[in-house]
């Protein structure tokens, strides 16, 4: 381990959001276990955690796979509160799911109360190009509007699966480092204030 012994491994908490049936669980399972699940079974709330090597450093990723169904919308707030980064997934074959991302984005921002929260817009099922309903440009423009990256993935072919998770983790790690600094800065400010007073 590159870290000092006794020091806890960095833990990045990722939350999968998006409408039901867009492939959140499929992405997660593909990332975790290199396996593609064909059967559809609505998720309630699943938890996954494993060690990965991120830019030469061993870290832990904790994935909370949430329910897409409206029935569970009530319990989302609680989940969102604990997340450090979000993968907002929609299916490129279903326009409704793309529209729903707007709602998720708002809910996340409301709960986290942070415009710069690590966030990736993910268009899944990129292997089904012939059934595409959401165009690449459409999605990209929305991502740009939010100031977040947009990536198209395929849980079936594993295209860009690792990329979305690793990109998000990097963003989280960077955000944490920044947070620490700003905290220190804040503390400095405070001391300054005191001296002024």
């Amino acid at each position: 381990m590159s870290k000092k012994p006794g020091m806890a491994q960095a833990l990045h908490k990722v939350i999968m959001v998006g409408s039901g049936g867009v492939g959140k669980s499929a992405l997660t399972l593909q990332f975790m276990y290199d396996e593609f699940v064909v059967d559809y079974e609505p998720t309630k709330a699943d938890s996954y955690r494993k060690k990965v090597v991120l830019d030469g450093e061993e870290v832990q990723i904790d994935i909370l796979d949430t329910a897409g169904q409206e029935d569970y919308a009530a319990i989302r707030d609680n989940y969102f509160r604990s997340g450090e980064g979000f993968l907002c997934v929609f299916s490129i074959t279903e326009d409704d799911s793309f529209q729903a991302t707007q709602e998720f984005r708002e809910q996340i921002l409301r709960v986290k109360n942070d415009e710069n929260i690590p966030f990736l817009l993910v268009g899944n099922k990129s292997d089904l190009q012939d059934k595409r309903q959401v165009s690449l440009a459409e999605a990209q423009s929305r991502a740009q509007q939010w100031g977040v990256p947009y990536v198209e993935t395929s849980a079936k072919t594993r295209e860009n699966v690792d990329k979305v998770f690793f990109d998000l983790m990097r963003a989280i790690a960077a955000r944490k480092a920044q947070g620490n600094q700003s905290e220190i800065g804040e503390r400095k400010k405070k001391t300054n204030c005191c001296t002024v007073l």
Binding site: S25, L29, M32, Y33, T43, K44, A45, D46, S47, Y48, R49, K50, L64, D65
Partner: peptide, 9 residues
Amino acid sequence: VTGISPKEG
């Protein structure tokens, strides 16, 4: 064990 579905119930 690295994954559980669902995580509560």
